[in-house]
Design a protein around this nucleic acid. Sequence first.
DNA 1: CTCGTCACGTCAATGGCGTTGGCATAAGCT
DNA 2: AGCTTATGCCAACGCCATTGACGTGACGAG
Lengths: 238, 238
Amino acid sequence: MAKQVVPEAARQRRRPTKNGTVLSERLIVETALRMLREHGSDGLTVRRLGAALGADPSTLYRYFRSVDELTLAIGDELVGRALHGWQPGGDWRADLRTLGARIHAAYLAHPQAAVLTASRVTGRAHEIAADEAILGVLRTAGFPDDAAVRVYHAFIDQSLAFAILDAATLALPESARRADEGVWRATYAQLPADTHPHIAATAGLLVARMNRSAYPTALEMLLDSAAAALADASPPAG
Amino acid sequence: MAKQVVPEAARQRRRPTKNGTVLSERLIVETALRMLREHGSDGLTVRRLGAALGADPSTLYRYFRSVDELTLAIGDELVGRALHGWQPGGDWRADLRTLGARIHAAYLAHPQAAVLTASRVTGRAHEIAADEAILGVLRTAGFPDDAAVRVYHAFIDQSLAFAILDAATLALPESARRADEGVWRATYAQLPADTHPHIAATAGLLVARMNRSAYPTALEMLLDSAAAALADASPPAG
DNA sequence: CTCGTCACGTCAATGGCGTTGGCATAAGCT
DNA sequence: AGCTTATGCCAACGCCATTGACGTGACGAG
């Protein structure tokens, strides 16, 4: 029989843990986010999370059926933070830029968490709100439904893909990051010109660009292409 | 003292394992790839990999210092398969399209492996060959070095980001995939129009597009933009 | 043909992990 | 005051990656 997990709203009879903290879904997610940031992707374990909260590890299963469910909650919290306080401004290009930048920033603020929840569909409140917001921007701007869905899809994919890619390099454990960086300097910068002429010729430029994000450029290309589609769909008024 | 890992070439005195198989770096990587495909991302463990090879788990540490190193080898194998037999054709746009498609395909053929190695720098042979190939295509086509590096960077990022994003949804454990799909049908398709008008209005279109990749479109946008940059840099001959 | 070396396979053990079922207890309702 | 039950704790299970000590068999040297 599946263990019962009572939804947050119905929770009532909280008992403090041994050391006095009072648990809640929110407190757990926030603590998990902090642990991810401070101790890396591998630093978050049920046992350590329990310890950080002063609670027995097994207690957390009263709030989340599994680490996977906790993961989804963390992801949705990230989306929630990204969208918090956002309002559409009326210019769809500016709106999409802002939304994209917010998502990107939220992910980069917690790269380890971002990587964990990459590509999952949470179906939780914040995620749904984000989808509704994006579709709303496009449809309000006059995109026909099918074009709106196309642009929505491309926008989501591009934002997520780049945010995750950027986050992934930030989220690597310190050791892996140093290893990867070492590989660049030790291997790429030293390749002889006779076997690898093109890398050798551009090694300096390559290393300099190493940690730049390609997202802003890609987003502008997407916006241009969407604008062209919109112009086609709705011929200039008057 | 660090355990000694002898490079493949220097290996000599192979002894068959208990059940007769003769190990090699290549055999291990290929078995790992098969296990990933068949049993999912969580299905690959040192213990199970050992069992599949008929070898004691600890034996694998004679070939790879850690699972992380094995992971990098798997990633490089994927790149190697993607580029195998490829030759530049002289038209840089076509070449980049082909390279992108090959990488994309190789990743999608082993989504679990692709996700594992996402965003790592292996510094191994195949990866270096790929970088050299891409830079070669661009510089041979007449891109000045800085433009070549810019396009290279955008191309790599976009290819990898989308390949990984696409692979990630394929790579989820069966349970998570069913859960995510269920969320779409159960949650998104059922949202009432008064609270979520935009999702409700486009639910059908959204669900239909669910598993389409945004990569091809994004790649064409990138190629167009690169072509424009090239035209600026080298005014038409004649 | 013999012998020594040592690469490589195996064994056993360590400490960590997620997860579960049983139990005690205190919060809130009647 | 008494009952129900949500919630925290405990102990245990079967996994995991990794390591150090131990053999043993293949090979090169003579």
